[in-house]
């Protein structure tokens, strides 16, 4: 049997969900037997490949690059998983929505900077006016809330998905957990 093509991406988030993924410890080995990691911040692929079976998305959609990326990923992915509160709800990154992107940029790059304060315009993707959960931009197949979801939750999720079904993980995950 060929291996399941798995990808993970890190958008507007803190990487805590990826840490939690690594927290599966020895269970990673068991998972690794069944999957091929085709794209991830944890491996060295530069291009998001075609025909991915499962993509775990960490993080909210915060800038224009995130938005373009997730649209491309959606096209190339069979099962798209929103992993963790940022991807599921917008979470902490979305807290800037109540004051707007401009206010945040000014606070960070102008008000609190003494040396040559300026808002970066080149080589940094422009912020969207509104940070939003992944589902506001593309269709999401599975939601795993949690900040971060525990290693047990992610393990249960992957075991289920790899066996070909969407597991019920409602007892293992909740917003903020």
């Amino acid at each position: 049997m060929s291996k399941v093509r798995l990808a993970t991406v890190w958008l507007d988030g803190c990487s805590g969900c990826h840490m939690s993924l690594l927290d599966m410890d020895e269970r990673l080995v068991e998972i690794a037997d069944k999957v091929e990691i085709v794209y991830s911040p944890l491996v060295d692929n530069k291009e998001f490949p075609q025909e991915v079976d499962i993509t775990l998305v960490e993080g909210a959609i915060g800038n224009v690059e995130d938005e373009e990326k997730i649209k491309m990923i959606r096209q190339r992915t069979k099962t798209l998983v929103s992993l963790g509160d940022c991807a599921v709800t917008g979470n902490v990154p979305s807290m800037r929505n109540t004051c707007g992107a401009k206010a945040v940029l000014e606070r960070v790059y102008l008000e609190n900077v003494t040396l040559q304060p300026q808002i970066p315009s080149e080589s940094v993707p422009a912020l969207r006016s509104r940070v939003c959960p992944v589902r506001e931009v593309v269709k999401v197949d599975v939601f795993v809330p949690g900040c971060p979801p525990s290693a047990d939750t992610i393990h249960a999720l992957l075991v289920g998905l790899l066996s070909g079904s969407v597991p019920d993980i409602s007892l293992l995950s909740r917003f903020g957990a």
Binding site: G90, R130, C132, P133
Partner: peptide, 9 residues
């Protein structure tokens, strides 16, 4: 496990 409606912030 997710909120279907857009957040109003």
């Amino acid at each position: 496990d997710s909120i279907r409606f857009p957040y109003r912030f």
